[in-house]
Write a protein that binds this DNA or RNA. Sequence first.
DNA 1: CGCCTAACTAACCATCTAGTCCAATAATTG
DNA 2: CAATTATTGGACTAGATGGTTAGTTAGGCG
Lengths: 270, 270
Amino acid sequence: MSPRPAPRRRRDTPELTARAPGVLMSGEGPGAHRDVSERPRKRDSIGTQEKILAAAMAEFARKGYDGARVDAIIARAKISKNLLYHHFRSKEELYVKVLERTYETMRRRQEEVPLAGLDPVVAMRRLCESTFQTFIEEPEVIVMMNTENLHRGKHVAKSPIIRQLYSRLAVTIQAILEQGEARGLFRSGVDPVELYISISALGYFYLSNRYTLSMIFDRDLKSPENLARRKAHIIEMTMAYLTAGAADAAPLAAVPSAEAAPKAQARKAR
Amino acid sequence: MSPRPAPRRRRDTPELTARAPGVLMSGEGPGAHRDVSERPRKRDSIGTQEKILAAAMAEFARKGYDGARVDAIIARAKISKNLLYHHFRSKEELYVKVLERTYETMRRRQEEVPLAGLDPVVAMRRLCESTFQTFIEEPEVIVMMNTENLHRGKHVAKSPIIRQLYSRLAVTIQAILEQGEARGLFRSGVDPVELYISISALGYFYLSNRYTLSMIFDRDLKSPENLARRKAHIIEMTMAYLTAGAADAAPLAAVPSAEAAPKAQARKAR
DNA sequence: CGCCTAACTAACCATCTAGTCCAATAATTG
DNA sequence: CAATTATTGGACTAGATGGTTAGTTAGGCG
């Protein structure tokens, strides 16, 4: 083995960034500054971190973890590589931050939709809609979750923040189900987790696999008409399941439309 | 620019690798040959390609395209690197071959399930079961499709073989739907593509995202009980949707069980 | 039976990639 | 003002990675 004094010192940097204090006015240094049209470029730590996170989110959501390039992230964020590593320890740490942010987005979107106190049927329809709508408007969520599952959830496992985000949702759904059952609108014995997985699945898979599905079935799944049709289908399927065999079974189309086009469609859909 | 004569030599091999022409048949020369139980290991082109494809499938399904390493593939296949490149032009070509094989698997599994001529209700239940079962028993399918969709289907687009595999299925489903409708068992106006996407989604998403879902909901989605429950749920949901509002609507649980455990469960599940 | 081609190997290489080092400079804050 | 922190810049490196080159072996066939 070649005598290599420093074996490797990636991480173990003692973070002493002792810069020589005085000696620095020597050269004509500033000559290189060619930023003329740029705005003053102030020092804004959290703003920069925000830029980096946004750029990283875009890159990870486009290429996955292994396909993502740190150089691409710094290019997107228009910062130097050193600055990225000044704020984040490693590519992996940055990825975890982005992942946490993704889950935070999901949680926020969920809490934005008021479900408590509503008629159970309306509440469920609204849950279906908003779940699908979130996947449409936050496409990064899908790729980030796919990426994380490719890695078998090893980062989520280490992030205690993420693990708690969904507890409230399960409770909410449970309440809606109980109310619906009590009023004879829903069947009994519905598992809220199973149900939520299904509602998510119906929209998530459709969007996540739209490239291959579009190819196979020769249909543009992202067209506004098909998205609208899909949303209706998800609601139909979910409500049919819930109402089938209920005490006071509404035979079909419990509330056919009543709340079409609740929000701007596809805020930043691609 | 330190004057570096030799550009770079990672492995710092002691130069001159001139293999002496003759001296190598001395019995233990290829000492690495400790394959005793193995068959003589003749020169077997298609057998080798098979080994490579199997190894590549395993690697791609574990790591995705960018995470997969050619070196890992050759290690798994126990062949030399150049042999891989002798049979396949590039990592990408190999990936496409694996992808095609994946779709071929799906097609084969679909055709193995006889649906024509059955009672529509039975046929649909069977379709739900077999779809889920295929995802369980061929876990590579899920990751390969996720990977391909991460790349926005660019390889599928170039592979005409893949694009035709599903045409037959759509026709089959359409026939079942029509029959069910004619007999007053199913609702009318069901889109076969939309339906098939939903049936797939309910199982696919559950399995594909099981790592994060298991974490979030604190439930082992891969346990035999939960898999069985999921299968029942998928059937319930699909049949509820199809039968809701049918002319001759069967209120609930059209055919409660009747065909439980059709095959060995989880043939090569992990 | 020798030769040609295809199967096969080991070493090697060019390049890429995450991450570092060493400055230098400008803004912020105590 | 002085210490700190944010920021840029560029050169640099270890190691990994896809792919190639030069060479060896086996087997079918004329």
